[in-house]
Write a protein that binds this DNA or RNA. Structure first.
Lengths: 270, 270
DNA sequence: GGCTGTGAACAGTTTCACAGCG
DNA sequence: CGCTGTGAAACTGTTCACAGCC
């Protein structure tokens, strides 16, 4: 499987760490809000609070982009908005296609957050012929048969997959074959793509499961209201709870064993 | 803001790293699929491929849960499904409420991935009186006025916010006041919550922006088809692209900024 | 022989704390 | 003085490589 080639120290494209890239959109949103309120400058402390991170992290992040602040003053809001937008590639237009116009696809089509950034929905595509021509978010749904044509004609390089899991890989293959090199996958499947194609996935149920994990920990613990740090609860979450609470371990596996010698608990949820 | 208390070495509840917790749902899904095909055992290599991670990582992850494998053989599928479910807290029932029944809320309500895990949608709630009583995914939408009552009566501890950004914080406050301690936020806002409440967020446009960043890097590069490693394109993506492409910097900021002080590694293997 | 489990090396990320500039 | 920018320290996460068991 793994093609001969081994590791790779690279990872960084031009010096901007992935973790930083993932936060730039956050900063951008906070800055956009400030910009709309005509706030001229902002300190790392204020901006960090608005973005839900801590200020040291924010300053470090910005330091990878360059020195865009003014000591003793802060950052110029407009200028930073521009710099981050440029860094993210949002100063250009990105045509995207959304494949799979079910509930989720429709939600995505209607989502204002796309258009307001540099994204333009070039087409909505669905395999169901009954959907063809229907208007969703003011656009006619087009049939899967046209997928390749649409991709090529619009020079689409980003595709969003919102189909059922079963159709995802096939759609993915067609998108890639037609020229798409970045895919946002909402279907609960692992997609295989050739080298050079980026895939990011968003899985609704995974997020809930992670919450359940932490929730369970809280419940297992009697008192202690757990703690966190800065007023805001950011993405990563975690780092909460307060105790090992070896409790709940009761049922089994308490020690080491592994083996249901010949049989399994089978208790399973559903 | 920050309440006296400072850091906390903790982070790990009972030894399971956050990164591992975040992957457990992935393994669980792959295992469930194997289970449905009645596959009795699976090796770390196979399971890793199915989950889209590498086998060393998977083995390390599992080692935090205990020794559930058999050397020379692999893992018992059913048993692992059970262990992971238990670890994630999915062997119990988690009633959740979804607030904001727009396109996205409806998509979530219809999403099968919830019910199939331990999640049960206890109620769909919307502020629009015109929605009240309407059936979505077979459930009647209820009005926001009832929010507190619903939470308490159903002992809901997990809430999903799918409202417009403007309403999110207010909804969040009410959820928390009524007893919710875990929130999955789809609204593009940073939520403030008291200590002990977990928030995870899913932001559709952020994911696209991250893709755009990488896409831009690819475009800046002429040839080199970039590389990746094992056939599958996993979540984190990144680590692709092939060149710094200091190019695009042209327009502005060419003057004062200093970035990484000249050096700039530039080029890369290729 | 095959595959798990894991210490140890490595890589990436966050936090600290303070020098340096406006 | 205030606030940015950043080395260095601390930490978290990943990968390697192999001992140990089946």
């Amino acid at each position: 499987m793994a093609t001969g080639r081994s590791h790779r120290p690279a990872t960084r494209s031009r010096g901007i760490p992935e973790a930083t890239v993932a936060r730039l959109p956050l900063y951008l949103r906070a800055l956009t809000a400030l910009s709309e309120r005509s706030v001229p400058t902002v300190s790392s402390e204020e901006l960090a609070a608005a973005a839900g991170v801590n200020s040291a992290k924010l300053r470090k992040d910005f330091s990878y982009l360059g020195s865009y602040g003014t000591r003793g003053v802060g950052y110029d809001v407009e200028y930073l908005v521009y710099q981050i937008s440029r860094e993210l590639g949002l100063t250009q237009d990105w045509p995207v296609v959304i494949v799979g116009i079910g509930n989720l696809g429709a939600a995505l089509a209607n989502y204002g957050g796309f258009a307001s950034r540099g994204f333009r929905v070039a087409a909505l595509i669905d395999a169901d012929a009954a959907m063809t021509g229907k208007l969703v978010a003011g656009m006619p749904v087009r049939h899967t048969d046209e997928l390749e044509k649409i991709i090529v004609e619009n020079e689409v390089s980003i595709g969003v997959i919102a189909t059922p899991a079963g159709a995802a890989q096939q759609v993915c293959d067609r998108l890639v074959a037609a020229g798409v090199t970045s895919i946002l996958n909402f279907a609960p499947t692992v997609l295989s793509v050739p080298d050079g194609v980026d895939v990011r996935k968003v899985d609704l149920s995974i997020e809930l499961q992670i919450l359940a994990f932490h929730e369970q920990r809280k419940a297992g613990e009697g008192g202690a209201p757990a703690e966190a740090e800065g007023a805001v609860g950011v993405e990563g979450a975690a780092a909460k709870v307060t105790k090992p609470a070896t409790t709940a371990d009761s049922d089994r596996a308490g020690d080491d064993n592994k083996g249901p010698d010949g049989d399994v608990p089978a208790v399973m949820p559903a």
